[in-house]
Design a protein around this nucleic acid. Structure first.
Lengths: 293, 293
DNA sequence: CATGATACGTGGATTTACGCACAGATAATT
DNA sequence: AATTATCTGTGCGTAAATCCACGTATCATG
């Protein structure tokens, strides 16, 4: 049973009782309606209508088809209503993904967003692997670092995450604060395991600190933070989270070169939807508070 | 939500995951599939799929559509199965119509037909008005008299109903049997109220019997039969039913000129169906017994 | 790293399907 | 009884949908 349009045509004829009336409703010529009926009957091998000069009347098969098509028509109408309205209201699921290191920032934001739009169910997917927008795994992704340049993705800069140099209070008590670049060789540093990291402050580190003084390397940001807290050495941490921790001492103010840009990424097909737009606006508003924190 | 074919296309894309795959299944070019999706999305104002170089993945709206279309597809498949098979088996309703004067012949035949095909539900519509085949009021009509010549109707001659001249036994006792045409003016006759009746034996009557000797006229065949039984005069009755009645005496053998042809009439759209064919064949078989009765 | 396979996307040629107009027929109306 | 209105059915020309071919991008594989 291919060619669903012919079923629709037959349905309208059964409802109207005449080919001409159905043609008017469908907005096509009555010859087209006749052709559809003929084609459908030939394919099914059954007469659907009895033809007489005053119109068409459905046979048993035609009435059967009419019932099925009636249900289909209602189903499709409901579907159209759902789908059309869907884009206009903020409800359903909102799937957000990011690296799990951003959870401290995102979790409160998402909670507030859900409170603002109670019809929303938030799903926050975090992981080391990047959830891919183009396969529909998420509506919005929060990315850090260099600007993503995937095609079909809409990228907006969210805010600059300011990064500063920190060490634990105990470390400072033992080794003192470096007063300038000349002091760096006397200290130990914590950095990412990947030496040629793309992060700007690690590039700075490679340029300004001897390799052998980087005595602790880890692949995970959280592990690096814990290492710093465990007096492993001096490292770079986002200012907004580190400033809340009394066990940490800021050794140098954040430099612009060290800042990590943050990006809001959406798939182009979803970017224009009201739901996603509402979330993007909300996140940008919240991000103003992040810098102050 | 017009254009059901586009829904079908979108459904196939959602199932396959790729435009090309859907195009193969649908037997169309993949460009056509893309155009259908685009048109549907534009009409709904919602993106149904997220496009990426490895295929299409459905958005929430797309998945919603997919579910509805899935149900539709199943409904249509079942419908096609029902409708296609419907023509091949003798079941459901069989609607037969005739003038109610033929009920004595038809009722036993219909009962036997129902016994032969237990899946059949017989509906026997009788009345003075002609139920019209072209509006689907009945599958088969049994007509008597001159050959029906309606277009779109398939007419088959069933049998000749032999008509003979009868009177009641009491009438014969009182007035005797007419031995030939010369005796007719001495007798009373029963005939149809419509003087210029189309029935051949009434034409014969008008030609061979003085008008004033037709002393009882009725519009209903059954009333005429009752009048004859009530000694009203001589009249024409079908041989098969009158011969069973001991109160009637046959005054003249049936002439070929008097025979009323009987016709089986079906609408051309239904004539070829197995159900109707089975019934037509069955009636013809039964009709062989009618002459003998 | 290069290559083959797969899939999407688009402009131009082609076929299919549609609209148009007229004929045939019936039912309602005057 | 004649007429008008309505509906079906069909041949023909045109417009729209389709097919085709090419280009581009991505992923898998040796």
């Amino acid at each position: 049973m291919d060619n669903w349009d012919e079923v629709r045509t037959a349905f309208q004829v059964a409802k109207m009782g005449t080919v001409s009336g159905a043609a008017d409703v469908l907005g096509v010529h009555h010859a087209t309606v006749i052709r559809h009926i003929d084609a459908l009957e030939n394919r099914l091998g059954v007469k659907l209508f009895q033809r007489h000069p005053r119109g068409y009347t459905a046979t048993e098969a035609g009435e059967d088809l009419c019932r099925v098509a009636q249900a289909t028509d209602e189903q499709f109408s409901q579907l159209a209503g759902r789908v059309k309205g869907q884009g206009d209201k903020v409800s359903g699921e909102l799937v957000v993904t990011s690296l799990n290191s951003l959870a401290p920032l995102m979790s409160p934001t998402l909670a507030a967003f859900q409170e603002r739009y109670p019809d929303i169910t938030v799903r926050y997917l975090t992981g080391e692997r990047l959830f891919r927008l183009e396969y529909g795994e998420a509506h919005v992704a929060l990315r850090v670092g260099s600007a993503p340049e995937q095609p079909d993705n809409v990228v907006q800069e969210l805010t600059q995450q300011k990064v500063a140099m920190y060490a634990s209070r105990d470390y400072v008590d033992q080794h003192g604060k470096p007063q300038g670049p000349e002091d760096y060789p006397k200290h130990r540093f914590v950095a990412h395991d990947q030496e040629n990291s793309r992060a700007p402050f690690f590039k700075w580190l490679a340029a300004n600190v001897p390799r052998e003084k980087v005595t602790f390397r880890a692949t995970d940001n959280r592990a690096m933070e814990l290492a710093i807290l465990a007096d492993a050495g001096i490292g770079f941490l986002p200012q907004n989270s580190a400033s809340k921790n009394d066990a940490l001492v800021q050794l140098a103010p954040p430099l612009d070169d060290w800042s990590i840009p943050m990006w809001l990424v959406t798939h182009v097909d979803l970017h224009r939807t009201v739901k996603v737009q509402a979330f993007l606006k909300f996140v940008k508003e919240q991000a103003k508070g992040w810098a102050l924190a």
